[in-house]
Design a binder for these strands. Sequence first.
DNA 1: GCAAAATGTCAAGCAAGCTTGACATGCTCG
DNA 2: CGAGCATGTCAAGCTTGCTTGACATTTTGC
Lengths: 68, 68
Amino acid sequence: MENRLKELRAERGWSQADLAERLDVSRQTVNALERGKYDPSLPLAFRIARVFGRPIEAIFTPGQEDET
Amino acid sequence: MENRLKELRAERGWSQADLAERLDVSRQTVNALERGKYDPSLPLAFRIARVFGRPIEAIFTPGQEDET
DNA sequence: GCAAAATGTCAAGCAAGCTTGACATGCTCG
DNA sequence: CGAGCATGTCAAGCTTGCTTGACATTTTGC
């Protein structure tokens, strides 16, 4: 699963810690998500979508794994 | 998190097992999702959205938990 | 060049998502 | 009635998502 977290965060001039606070998760979680270590839960994906004012589909895109 | 799984599945006349097969998960998982036992992972949410031809936001809606 | 802030990373542990297998119940329809 | 399908449910077990705490490395800016 690919995502535009880093890009969207940068646009807003937020640190990973800033974003983590807005999402109510740990800084390490934001870091792991940006680096593609794992995917967020659906509830967290909704919070991310809300923070950035975009639909989930505009932030996350299923990669090779889910394409068929 | 609320969802319209049961409704959308019924519209198509599919059994839980049918849907499970299309989503590549177990029948018990579909049953648990419909009954709100837990939320799907984000990758599974994407597959569900694709199977029903609707955006994730049109199928799942964060409840009280995520509203503030 | 130095200090502080930001980012990356690791480990251990708990919680959530999903699996298989089994069994109970209910529904439909020959 | 009886067979078969659909649904609900439980338990045990594995994997993934997320946490805290600690420490190393990179970036920023004075």
